[in-house]
């Protein structure tokens, strides 16, 4: 792998890590959903950089297909998370009774 695809791959890995850390922090839910999406973009960037096979050569189509599928999955997941968040916001605020859950 030449230096510029490697640069993209490393950038992708960094974005993946940053997004993952942010998604695990105790933030507002919307921020965490966005963080998960950013983290996903990092993985996609890695995959796209792995598709590079050299100057004037056609890129490897398989990682592209993987990225497309991944985007579809990410959209569906974000949609479900947002729908749940909306339902949670619409519920009347009940007193949170203590159970022995962690």
């Amino acid at each position: 792998m030449g230096s510029s695809p490697l640069l993209y791959a490393v950038t992708g890995a960094l974005i993946f890590g940053i997004g993952l850390l942010a998604s695990l922090r105790d933030e507002a839910l919307l921020a965490r959903i966005i963080a998960i999406n950013i983290s996903g973009v990092g993985v996609f960037l890695m995959l796209v950089s792995f598709a590079y096979r050299g100057f004037e050569l056609a890129p490897d189509p398989i990682p592209h297909a993987l990225v497309l599928t991944g985007i579809v999955v990410a959209v569906a997941a974000s949609g479900l998370a947002l729908a749940l968040e909306k339902r949670l916001a619409e519920l009347p605020k009940s007193k949170t009774h203590k159970e022995d859950s962690p």
């Binding site: 993946f16 998960i36 996903g40």
Partner: peptide
């Protein structure tokens, strides 16, 4: 859901 997504990523 969120933890599942992190695991899948």
């Amino acid at each position: 859901l969120m933890l599942g997504l992190v695991g899948s990523l």
